[in-house]
Design a protein around this nucleic acid. Structure first.
Lengths: 189, 189
DNA sequence: GCATATATTGAACGATCGTTCAGGCCCTCG
DNA sequence: CGAGGGCCTGAACGATCGTTCAATATATGC
């Protein structure tokens, strides 16, 4: 009768967590609220995720994937265009949604309180910077690796600020200026 | 017998909130935990602060004061040095402590979930940018006001990133490069 | 069709939450 | 001295929390 596409309830639960975390913060994420939001029973949440901590961990890993994907080389492009594409992507309206940014902020805040969350976060940041440095190295092969690392770090600072500023009060003009500044840093010399 | 300096217990309670919020996030801030941390009874917390919301509000206003003070003109200096001092102050180890940064992050995260917290936050950011723009205007009188505003916005982006990056993994070198970049932006032309 | 495994439910547990409140302490003023 | 008011305490309330678990439904393999 109804669509026989089987729903992956574990995925439904994770999406509910992301939604609640983004909209209401960690205080809004109770096992019962998650169950209600996902449209499943309370018991099922604990069935698919051992406890609340592993639920949050799953959310962290989900965001991590998205972030790393930002610096995934787009092999269809030339190295320099590849780098430009990655730098522009962070300001893409598709990524710069309040939901995504707020979620990031909540996860950062959580990482401050729990050591293992912080580890996941730090690891992700390292991978992101490494990906960015690799893109810069490919676009400017004459640069020594540590210079690429420096530039990647500088760009990371601005991008973090860009994300945060976008969240606290979207200001499209200053965001696009910041993106331009990132390109200057990356491609200078 | 012992020191008869009367302790201001209301202040003790607020400091306990700031400490707990910074170290454990909002989940660690219960009325009982605050009372324990401040060394007072549970009832007293509700006596001095109507409810938990007004406790958080007090914490927000406290941080707001500190932020605005950063761009308070230091009248002992010449305009340009005054601006430089303000820009350097944000990277001062005295301000760049994990406790302070984490506290900021937690409050930002809270602002995402509660509308009135967000209002306080937005207001504070506006005041901060205005203060920064005024400093720039004083150091470069030939600049039109809207150009000062633009530069203040750009610097705000980088500073937000600087704070966030410092929190996620302190990297002194990239922080001082970012401070230098802020000076360039402010004093260009 | 029957057994076996997996997925799902909701009641129940003890712990902790925010808030209320009756009462005790201490200082001040008449 | 005694009344009154601000400060402070801890017990108590009902609500909600995370977690457990026995029971049921659904799918899978023989």
């Amino acid at each position: 009768m109804d669509a026989d596409e089987k729903v992956d309830r574990q995925a439904l639960i994770l999406e509910a967590v992301l939604r609640l975390l983004s909209l209401q913060g960690i205080s809004g994420v109770s096992m019962r609220a998650v169950a209600r939001e996902a449209g499943v029973s309370l018991g099922l949440v604990n069935y698919h995720y051992e406890d609340k901590t592993s639920l949050i961990r799953a959310a962290l890993h989900r965001i991590e994937e998205q972030d790393i994907a930002l610096v995934e080389p787009d092999l269809a492009l030339e190295p320099e265009e590849r780098l430009r594409a990655a730098l522009t992507r962070v300001a893409d309206p598709e990524f710069l949604t309040t939901e995504y940014l707020s979620l990031r902020l909540q996860l950062w805040a959580l990482a401050q309180a729990h050591e293992d969350f912080e580890r996941i976060n730090t690891e992700a940041q390292k991978r992101y910077r490494a990906g960015l440095a690799a893109l810069i190295g490919a676009a400017r092969p004459e640069l020594p690796p540590d210079e690429c690392g420096k530039r990647a770090a500088d760009i990371d600072v601005i991008q973090n600020g860009l994300w945060l500023t976008a969240l606290l009060g979207l200001d499209r003009a200053s965001i696009s200026r910041s993106v331009a500044r990132c390109e200057e840093i990356a491609l200078a010399g």
